[in-house]
Simulated assay, not measured.
Amino acid sequence: MLDWVALCAISLLISLLTVAGYVLYSGLLSDVTVLTGSPPIKKITFVYKFKKGPYQNCGQLFKESLSIGPKRACIGVFYDDPKKVPGPQCRCAVGSILNEGENKADEELLKSYETSGFKVFSFPEVTHVVTTSFPHRTFFSVLLGIRRVYPRLEHYIKERRLCAHPFLEIYREGLIQFMVPLARQGDFYVPEVRPAERRLLEREELHSDSEVSGADSNSDCSSGSGVLLSDSRETSLAGSSVRSVVLQDQGNRNYRRRSSRGTSFKELDWDPTGGQRAEREERLRRDSNKKSPQAHEWWGAVGGEE
């Protein structure tokens, strides 16, 4: 009886040590260092399937993509914050990277993906992203990475008031590389993700400024607009669009006046079609009575009086 109890205890201890070793090997104690810098990938062409639903159900898409191209790096692009957006409404694109930089894609492999219903899309190379990495050694590494990395990414972005979205995961060479673009975010939205929103983002690229020194100048959020983590993209974009607008007088290119968004000419009590000129003429007429005849004669010549 004692021998049986001792044997059970030893077996339990071995099992616990095995589980502990497995968890440690999967990355439990790995450092997670979030920083702003160069992206882990260049311009890429990839194949993907779009999915709307809880993110925990995306595993099947990763498996399907790997079954076609087992040597290709996998990529997942996640557009919504599952803490704020209901699971059935969360959107993602999952697939494999066909080529990076100037390398050419394998045409035969591309046909295989397209036959299985995958679509083709490209992401540009940007100069600045929020990025970190996590070991990818076991299946449990994915679960650990998600639980450990995302809270730190969100804290880093919010603390620095960065405009960073969407969230990318790249699986290759024993690592999960996390990347969040700080510029040209509209180019990272696949066509299925609200085409109208994507067009709006692309238009904003012409006028937006980045908070990151040296980052691409066409970031899709104005400075200080915060992180876009929820599905309410229209609200976030509207709030991030408040910026100064230059109003140029076509009659005098050297004259400029700035007006903030939402302030009309009526509120400024300034009529660009002649109100300011009429006010100036009235003021000069009143002053002309106090001036010399020469001054009055000067006003008549300029003002058109006979």
Rank of each mutant, 00 (worst) to 15 (best):
F123N: 02
S230Q: 06
A301E: 12
G274A: 05
L237S: 09
H155G: 11
V126P: 02
E234L: 13
S260Q: 08
E64I: 00
L110F: 00
T127S: 15
G37D: 06
C90Y: 00
V245K: 07
E107Q: 14
E202Y: 06
R137M: 10
P135E: 04
V190F: 02
G37K: 03
S292T: 15
G76R: 00
K49S: 04
G262R: 11
W270D: 11
G262M: 07
P272C: 04
N252Y: 09
V126T: 05
A215W: 01
R257V: 12
D31W: 10
L28E: 01
E107A: 14
V94A: 07
L29C: 12
A164W: 01
V149G: 01
G303V: 10
Q60W: 11
S133I: 02
P88M: 13
H296R: 14
P40F: 05
S219A: 15
L28A: 08
I44S: 00
P272I: 03
S259W: 08
R91C: 07
K290C: 12
D187H: 14
V245T: 09
P195L: 13
F178A: 01
V32I: 15
R257N: 06
Q89I: 04
G145V: 05
D80E: 07
L16D: 04
K71H: 10
P293W: 04
S232A: 12
E125K: 12
A295C: 14
D231I: 07
S219T: 07
V245P: 00
L17E: 08
L143C: 11
Q185Y: 03
R283Y: 12
S292M: 13
P124E: 10
E192V: 02
S223A: 06
R233I: 12
R203Y: 11
F118V: 02
R137N: 14
L182W: 04
P70A: 06
A183N: 06
E173A: 14
C163A: 13
F167W: 05
R172Q: 11
E107V: 13
L35V: 09
P39R: 02
E102N: 15
L7Q: 12
E125M: 09
C92Q: 05
K111R: 13
Y79T: 00
D81W: 08
R161M: 10
V23K: 07
H165L: 14
K43L: 12
E202P: 00
F134I: 04
S260T: 08
W299N: 05
T127W: 05
D187M: 10
L16H: 10
L109Q: 05
R243L: 08
L206P: 01
V302T: 15
G214L: 10
H155Q: 15
V19F: 09
Y150D: 10
S210Y: 08
A105K: 09
H136Y: 15
V126G: 01
K291S: 14
H296L: 12
F118Q: 01
G95D: 03
E202H: 11
